[in-house]
Design a protein around this nucleic acid. Structure first.
Ligand SMILES: [Zn+2]
Ligand SMILES: [Zn+2]
Ligand SMILES: [Zn+2]
Ligand SMILES: [Zn+2]
Lengths: 159, 159
DNA sequence: AGCATCTCGATACATTATATCGGTATCACC
DNA sequence: GGTGATACCGATATAATGTATCGAGATGCT
């Protein structure tokens, strides 16, 4: 980021009834998963959907209150963790940022193309690293580095 | 991590002439790349190689000085950034940690299996996310989440 | 009602990372 | 062998990011 200043306004986020629908769908999904869509969780998702791009936790914290007052950090971090757990949002580790999931399916592997120049990001189908450039070039991307991080349990801990 | 307490001592890092050789190789590679292997860079790599596992920046900072005194944060972060740029080490974003590269080739896509229980990590060949479980099960790993983050330049910025 | 569990708000704190600046080393060139 | 450009370093200060903890309220179950 900030390496060049191409000023490209990408596609923006949701508003109006698109937003309402997305929130309603999320609530459904939440209920089906046996979880509660509480007020802070809904608000966090609303902000991510409105933004339509990755947001830093502290940027959300600043604008969290409906009344314009910032939230306390744990409130927002808890909500974001919840959304990520449910698959409604993803954390992008290399940006320390969070973004609403654009795919419907639950618990899918997440993959992102991230422009280091302008900050644009795109959620894409997961792919093998050696196929990244081919996949990315459909969007004109030139990839410089790919990282794959798979979390789980090792042989010893799984047993 | 810290979810269970299987106490498995994994393979450890380098020492003695294994360490010296690795450092010497790194210096060669550095020179061939037209870069300088300075004292702080060498020291950072030495610590990563000795550890043989991912290390937090501030853990390195604590033990950085040959004389037992800690380093200043920018010293270590600069060295780590350099090592990562050269492909001698990787940053593991989801752990905020750094590890010496176990593969020889330069600028390869990095992929890691990370045990959330004991913290064991393993650098592996990059793979397509849908093949992760198959690949990982060779080591007994059970994968719960995979993320792919590809950095580069978007169509607009590349042009 | 009584109890377990989940969730929240608040305070305080911990961890991780960077901006900046002045000085030194290194190198290319003349 | 001087001179300027660049890369690198050490130090100070501060910014950005993330958590531990605790008491109170909400929710669901029997
Ligand atoms: Zn997604
Ligand atoms: Zn871009
Ligand atoms: Zn590697
Ligand atoms: Zn383990």
């Amino acid at each position: 980021m900030a390496e060049c200043e191409h000023d490209h306004d990408g596609p923006e986020g949701l508003s109006g009834h698109h937003l309402s629908h997305a929130l309603h769908d999320a609530e459904d999904r939440c209920v089906r998963a046996g979880e509660r869509m509480t007020q802070p969780r809904r608000r966090a998702l609303e902000l991510l959907l409105e933004a339509g791009k990755p947001m830093k936790a502290y940027d959300l914290i600043e604008i969290f209150g409906e009344d314009g007052r910032p939230a306390k950090p744990p409130t927002v971090y808890r909500a974001l963790d919840f959304l990520a757990k449910l698959g409604l949002a993803h954390r992008i580790e290399s940006l320390n940022a969070y973004v609403a999931c654009e795919m419907g399916e639950r618990n899918h592997a997440a993959a992102f193309l991230i422009c280091d120049c302008c900050g644009a990001t795109e959620e894409v189908e997961p792919f093998a690293p050696e196929k990244v450039q081919a996949a990315a070039s459909k969007s004109g991307y030139i990839i410089e580095a790919v990282t794959v991080e798979a979390h789980g349990r090792c042989g010893a801990c799984a047993s």
